[in-house]
Computed example of a mutant assay.
Amino acid sequence: MKCLLVDDHALVRDALALLIALHHPRVDLRQAGRLRDARALLEAEPDVDLVLLDLALPDSQGLATLHALREAAPATRTVVLSADDRPETVLAAIDAGASGFIPKASESPLLREALASVLGGGVYVPALAARPAEQPISADRLGLTPRQVDVLRMLVDGGSNKLIARALELSPSTVKSHLEAIFERLQVNSRTQAVVAAARLGLRL
């Protein structure tokens, strides 16, 4: 996997690069400190699989950074890595197309878990961003089949499509079909939105 880390603080980049090299040695990591450098790198290397993006850069701030990055590489998964982990910021980033959100203030074990999830193709969203409903509902009420519940449970746990297919002994196309049905039931458009929706509904899985 090729990953691009975009953060204007060299110390942060170095620390994350060390963490990734230590726990994920097969990741080919690129780095950039400004939005313009990140866009140039993505243009030169369109095979980047994942971008870890800080929203606060010298030449761009806030969600405009995410919009600009996704405009440059719409097919590349982008996970926000930010010090601003307010629920409204997290949800706005997900609505804008982020494939996950990792708070910079995360404790080391949680940060390792989050990185492992997104680098493995899964989803990570901080628990505080998904305030559960006061009255949890069952999957039956949403019309989910038992197998779709299994898929959603693994998705919530950060599983990638490949991992879900292997664990449930399903073909990738079957997993994709189940996810499409889940998205329709939850009225969402992405894996990340599905994870947040399941948590906010208090779904009993």
Rank of each mutant, 00 (worst) to 15 (best):
V118C: 02
A92Q: 13
G121D: 12
G159V: 14
R112K: 10
A139E: 03
T145P: 02
E107W: 07
A127Q: 12
G159L: 03
P87L: 11
G120A: 08
S106L: 08
K104R: 15
G143M: 07
P146F: 04
L144A: 00
L152E: 05
G158V: 08
E134D: 15
G159R: 08
A114N: 04
I164N: 05
V90D: 07
A98T: 15
A96D: 07
L142V: 01
L142W: 02
R86H: 11
G159I: 08
D140W: 01
R112F: 01
L144M: 10
L111C: 06
A133N: 05
S138P: 01
P146E: 03
V125G: 06
G120M: 10
P146Y: 05
P136I: 13
L152D: 06
A167P: 01
E107Y: 12
G121V: 13
T145C: 02
S138M: 04
M154D: 00
T145G: 04
L144Q: 02
P132L: 07
P126G: 13
A127G: 06
I137M: 00
V149L: 00
S160Q: 14
D157L: 15
A139H: 00
Q148K: 03
G143F: 05
G121R: 07
G143S: 11
S108Y: 09
L142E: 01
R112E: 11
K104S: 06
M154Y: 00
P126C: 09
A129M: 14
T145V: 08
A93K: 05
A92D: 13
L142C: 02
K162Y: 06
E107T: 09
R147C: 02
V118T: 12
I137G: 00
A92Y: 10
A130G: 05
L110T: 12
Q135R: 15
F101S: 06
V123H: 05
T145A: 10
S138W: 11
E88K: 10
L91H: 07
G120C: 14
K162A: 15
L163Y: 09
G143T: 06
V149Y: 00
F101G: 07
D150H: 04
T145I: 00
S117T: 14
E134Y: 06
D150L: 08
G143E: 06
G158Q: 05
S138G: 13
Y124K: 13
E107F: 04
F101P: 10
G121W: 09
A92V: 11
A167V: 07
E113G: 05
G122R: 14
I94N: 11
Q135L: 13
D150K: 15
L110H: 11
R131Y: 09
G158L: 06
L119S: 02
V125K: 03
A93T: 10
L152A: 03
L128E: 12
I94M: 09
M154T: 00
V151L: 07
L128T: 06
I164Q: 02
L115V: 05
R131D: 02
F101M: 04
L163K: 15
P109Y: 07
A105Q: 09
E107L: 09
G143V: 03
M154V: 00
R86Q: 14
